[in-house]
Structure formats: C-alpha cells, structure tokens
Simulated assay, not measured.
Amino acid sequence: MKAITQSKARSCWLLGVLLGISLGGCNQVDSNPIATEENTQPRVVATSTIITDLAEKVGGEEIQLTGILQPGVDPHVYEPTPADSQVLETADLILYNGYNLEPALINLMNAAGEKARKVAVGEVVKPLQLDGYEGKVVPDPHVWGSAENAIAMVNLIRYELIELSPAEAEIFTQRAAKLTNELQQLHNWINQQIQTIPPDKRQLVTTHDAFQYYAQTYGIAIAGTLIGLSTEEQPSAQTVTRLVEAIKKTQVPAIFAETTINPALITTVAQEASVKLAPRQLYSDSIGAKGSEADSYINMMVANTRTIVEALGGNYTSFQPTN
C-alpha cells in the first residue's frame, strides 16, 4: 500500500504549562488498480487499523483491501482527505468500527460511499454504556479490548465477505476459523497473565478511557483515566487533581501512557502522584507500525498485556499459540 500522510496538532493550556496532545492524521491507499476485466476482485475499504488487520487475515488475496487509517493514527480526531473520498466512492464494501469511534470518516462514508454496503463491525458487540463527552451516556467504541469480542468481529467480517464473493466462501471460512482459534487461545492466555498480578495491584490508570472491555473481561479495575472515551476531550486542572489523588489513594505501582497520545501530561500526573510511568506505552486505538511488536491485532493485545503485567508486578510469559 502507498501511504499518504497528513498531520495535525492540538494543544491546551493546563496547569500553567502548554502541553500538546499530538494527533496525527494520514491514510494509506491500496496500490491495487481499479477493477477491470482482468482484475475483478471486490473492493473492500476498512477504517481502523484493527479492522483492516482482521479483514486482511480473512480476505487475503481474494479481495482488494484498502485501509484508510495508518498505524499510529487516532481515529477519534482523524480528518479525512480527498483521497479517502475517492476510495470510499469506488468501494463495494466498507467495514468500519461504529459507535462513533471514527466520526469524521463515518460522515464522509455516508456522503461518498453510496455504492457500497456499509457494515459497522464493532457494533456486532453489545456495548458498554459510559459517560462520554459533556456528561452524555454513550456506547464505548473500544470493543476490541476483549479477544472474545474480536472473534465476533471476525465472524461478521467472514459473513460479509462471503456475501460479497460467494465463490470464495470456503477459503474465507477456513481463514476465519484459523484466526478464531488463535483469538480464543489469546483470550485464555490474557486471563492467565492477569492472574499473576497481585490482586491489590490489578488496577489500571491510562491516558484515555479505552480499556473498559479489557478490564471487565480480564478482571482488572480501571482506577482512573486522564480523559474520557474520546481523545477530543481536554482535561481540566480539576480532572488532573482528582486523578493524582486517586492514584495516591489506590497506590498503584505504575500508570500508563498511550502510543497515539503525547505522553507529556500523563508524565506530569505521574510526577505529581509520585508513581512510576510504565516504561512501555499501551496501544489503544491503533495497532503498531509494520515490523513493530504490535503490528497486528493479536500482537497488539500481547504487547499491551505484557506492558500491564510487568508494570503491575505480575509474571509475564510469552504467548505461543498452537495450530
């Protein structure tokens, strides 16, 4: 795939210091040519890097897959480009997360993707209802935090690809079954890893509220977050003060930065609370770059679990799935 990148920056004045939350924006466009008599594979577009990865593993070379968001990009605040509009206009199937994870892309998709079937892959999962921006109760879009939820997403992707290309049903089904088996092993492994953390240390403090599904599925409490469900939010001085007090009260051994958000402010929180900032960052809304430790959904979940377990005093053992 060829990448076309675009970046943007936002900053806020907080606690007397200008601390920016950097939010990159870019898209990657598949190099496959537009379908012709020689190339009639269905054209599939995926929004988030997580859905792109799952769709690639199920669809393989039998589909033309374009992932709009590049690894490391925050879907909450991504600003679409003209190239995104072109890709959506020519799509046969658009796979997006839903629950308003990628609001600007959803708006563009509804305007430009008239030809395509649109499927909210994340909405196959019954959502947690949490306090969102400005106190509104909204569905939590970060459904992939549970590997069991990812299994449901894979099965929906398989179904939609078969609807799009019935002749490839057998191969889509085989790939989905293989991936589902590995995801089930991942789910069991994460449970085992979290259990090695001392019970009173199983508490998670992160930059934004993206780990509720992970926490509820694997038995770890959310002790606090700097901002809510969307990275569009800007924390107030009161929010920072409350989080510092919560950290001191719970005595968590470490708190966590995230790869898609500038760590400056959460670093300040760690200093104010006299707590260690975990040496490894969590992957929240995107997988890692190609070749990194988190360059697939499964690798991302393994990397996050390792980061949490090691920072909170557990005993990490590597994930070694069997066929």
Results as ranks from 00 to 15, higher is better:
residue 3 A to M: 05
residue 4 I to H: 06
residue 5 T to W: 01
residue 6 Q to D: 07
residue 8 K to R: 10
residue 10 R to T: 14
residue 15 L to V: 00
residue 18 L to Q: 13
residue 19 L to W: 02
residue 21 I to Y: 01
residue 27 N to Q: 13
residue 27 N to K: 09
residue 31 S to P: 02
residue 34 I to G: 14
residue 35 A to N: 07
residue 37 E to V: 13
residue 45 V to Q: 08
residue 46 A to P: 02
residue 49 T to H: 05
residue 50 I to S: 06
residue 54 L to C: 08
residue 57 K to A: 14
residue 59 G to V: 01
residue 60 G to K: 09
residue 60 G to Q: 08
residue 60 G to Y: 05
residue 61 E to H: 12
residue 66 T to L: 04
residue 75 P to V: 05
residue 83 A to S: 11
residue 94 I to R: 09
residue 98 G to M: 02
residue 100 N to G: 01
residue 102 E to S: 14
residue 105 L to C: 03
residue 113 G to C: 11
residue 117 R to L: 08
residue 117 R to I: 08
residue 122 G to Q: 10
residue 122 G to Y: 06
residue 127 P to S: 14
residue 132 G to F: 02
residue 141 P to T: 09
residue 146 S to W: 02
residue 147 A to D: 05
residue 150 A to T: 11
residue 152 A to I: 03
residue 158 R to T: 07
residue 159 Y to F: 03
residue 160 E to T: 03
residue 160 E to Q: 15
residue 161 L to Y: 08
residue 164 L to E: 07
residue 169 A to F: 04
residue 169 A to G: 09
residue 172 F to M: 09
residue 173 T to N: 15
residue 182 E to G: 01
residue 191 N to D: 12
residue 192 Q to V: 08
residue 192 Q to E: 15
residue 198 P to N: 06
residue 199 P to A: 15
residue 209 D to M: 09
residue 209 D to A: 15
residue 212 Q to H: 08
residue 214 Y to K: 06
residue 215 A to T: 09
residue 217 T to E: 15
residue 219 G to A: 13
residue 219 G to P: 04
residue 222 I to P: 00
residue 224 G to N: 08
residue 225 T to N: 15
residue 230 S to V: 02
residue 230 S to K: 02
residue 232 E to P: 00
residue 236 S to M: 04
residue 236 S to H: 04
residue 237 A to W: 00
residue 237 A to E: 10
residue 237 A to T: 14
residue 237 A to G: 04
residue 240 V to M: 11
residue 245 E to D: 14
residue 245 E to K: 13
residue 257 A to F: 04
residue 258 E to R: 09
residue 261 I to S: 08
residue 265 L to G: 13
residue 275 V to C: 01
residue 275 V to D: 09
residue 278 A to T: 10
residue 284 S to H: 06
residue 284 S to I: 04
residue 285 D to L: 02
residue 290 K to G: 04
residue 291 G to R: 10
residue 293 E to W: 00
residue 293 E to P: 01
residue 299 N to A: 15
residue 303 A to S: 13
residue 303 A to G: 00
residue 307 T to S: 14
residue 308 I to S: 06
residue 316 Y to T: 08
residue 319 F to I: 05
